Amino acid sequence: MYSHGSESLIRQAREIQESELNKFYSRLIKLLQGKELGHETVDSLQRLQLCTYVGEMAAVDCESVWNLVFGRFPAELFNDHFLAHELLRFLRLNLESLQLRVPQYTHSFPNLLKLLAWDSPALVDDFVDLLPSLVTTGTAVELLHTLLDLPCLSATLVLQLRSVCLPIADPGGRGLLSLDAFRNPSFRGLFLFLLRTEAGSGDTIDRLSTLHELLAEAADWPRVVQCAQTVPVLLHIFFNTVITVADEKLLAHLILVMLERSSLLLNIPKYCREIHRVFSCHLLRLCKLHPSLVVDQSHELLEFAGATANVYSKEEIYTHVVWVLGEYLSVSCDSRCSVSLITSCFEALEAVLFEITSSAPAPGAVCAAPRVITTLMSALAKLASRSHDLIPR
C-alpha cells in the first residue's frame, strides 16, 4: 500500500514522540503556506505519507495539512508542470491510504481537475488511474457535470492568467470578449463556480448556456481543444465505475443528466459528437442492466424522443433513446408499464416519423438519417405488438 520511501518514514515514525510530531506538522504547514511554492514543496509531498499514518498514532491535526494540499496546490500550481506531476504522482502512490484516511480527497476533484484542464496531454494518464477513486454515490452527479464542463474550465484558467497579465483596456482594441466577461461582475459567479476548490456547492451552473455563449471564442483555442479530446476517455471510465457503486435511483438521475447535457455543451462540433456517442453507448448499457429505468424515466425519455429537432441535432443519442423505448417499454421488463404508457409513446414516435417523412426537406435543409427512420419504424412495430388497439395502426 505504501511506497518504499514511505515505509522507511513510517518505521521512523513509530519512535517519534507526540511533541516531535507537532513540530513536524508545524514546519510542514509553514512550508505549504509560504508565499512562493518552490521545489521544496516536492520534498514536503514525499513526506506527506507520514501524515496519514502518524495522524492515527497521536492527536495531531492532519486536516490543515490536507486542506492546503488539496486546496492551495491545484488552485495555485495548475500551470506548474513539474509540481503538478509530483502531486499526481504522490496521489497515485498513496491512493488507497488517501481514500481510507483523508475525506478531503474525494471532494477535491473540482480543484484537482484544474491540473488536467491546463495540461491534458501530459496528465491524462494520471487521471485515468485516479478517476475511479473519485466516483462515489455522493460525488457522481457533480463529477459528471464537472467532466462535461472541463473545456470551459480550461478556457477559464486561460482567462484567469490573462486577466492578471493583460491591461484592462487594450489600446489596440483587440481585447477578448470572453476576457471582458471574465472581468464583468455580472458574470463573475459563473466563472467562480468553475474555479471552486471542492465539491458540494451544486451540480452545475444554472446559466450554463450563457457561459457557453461567453466562451464561444475559446472553442478553437489549442489548450481547450486538447482538453475536450480527453473528456470522452474519462467519461467511459466514469460510467464503467459508477455502475459498480450506484443504485437505480442514482442511475436514473444520471440518465436525466445525459439527456439534459446533450444540448448543453461548449460548441466544439467534434466534441459534441463524441459526447453524444459516449452517452448513447452508456444509455444502452444502463438500460440493459436495469430495464426498469426506462419506465422510471419514461416522461423525460418520451419528451426527448418527441422533439423533432433532436432528430437532426442529436442523431446518435436520439436513435438510441428511441431504441430503448421500443425495446424495454414492456410489461415483461417492468410490471408498471401500462397500456396507456405504451400508447402515449407510440403516438409520440408516430408523430415524429410522420413529420420527418411526410414532406421533402426545404432546399439546403438536412434530411433525417435513414438509421433514425428505421429505428423509429422498428420501435413502433414493437410497441404496437404489445397493445391490441395499436396493431391495426
Rank of each mutant, 00 (worst) to 15 (best):
C227E: 08
Q226C: 10
P185Y: 07
P185S: 08
L194P: 11
G202L: 04
G202E: 05
T230I: 13
G175N: 11
A218G: 03
L179D: 05
W221T: 10
G200H: 09
E213Q: 05
L192D: 15
D203Q: 14
F182T: 02
W221V: 12
T197H: 14
C227H: 07
A216S: 10
S201D: 13
L177W: 11
E213T: 03
L195P: 13
E198C: 13
S186E: 15
A228S: 15
A181W: 02
D220L: 09
Q229I: 09
L192A: 13
H212L: 00
F182D: 03
R223V: 14
L194W: 02
R196K: 06
A228D: 04
L179P: 11
G189W: 08
S178G: 05
Q229H: 14
N184R: 09
D180G: 05
S201A: 12
F182W: 12
R188T: 14
D180N: 09
L177N: 09
D203V: 13
L194K: 05
D180C: 06
N184H: 14
T230L: 06
T210Y: 01
D220G: 02
R207N: 12
L215G: 01
T204L: 08
E217W: 08
S201F: 12
R196F: 12
F191K: 00
D180E: 14
R223E: 13
F191D: 05
A218E: 08
C227S: 10
L215S: 01
E213S: 04
P185A: 11
Q229P: 03
L215H: 01
Q226P: 00
P185L: 06
D203R: 14
T204Q: 08
D180M: 10
A228P: 04
L211R: 00
E213D: 05
L192F: 10
S186A: 15
A199M: 12
E217G: 09
S186Y: 14
T197A: 14
V225W: 03
A218K: 04
F187D: 07
C227M: 09
R196W: 11
P185C: 07
S209M: 01
T204E: 10
L208E: 10
L215I: 01
D203M: 09
A181F: 04
L192G: 06
Q226D: 14
R196Y: 13
S201T: 08
G202V: 04
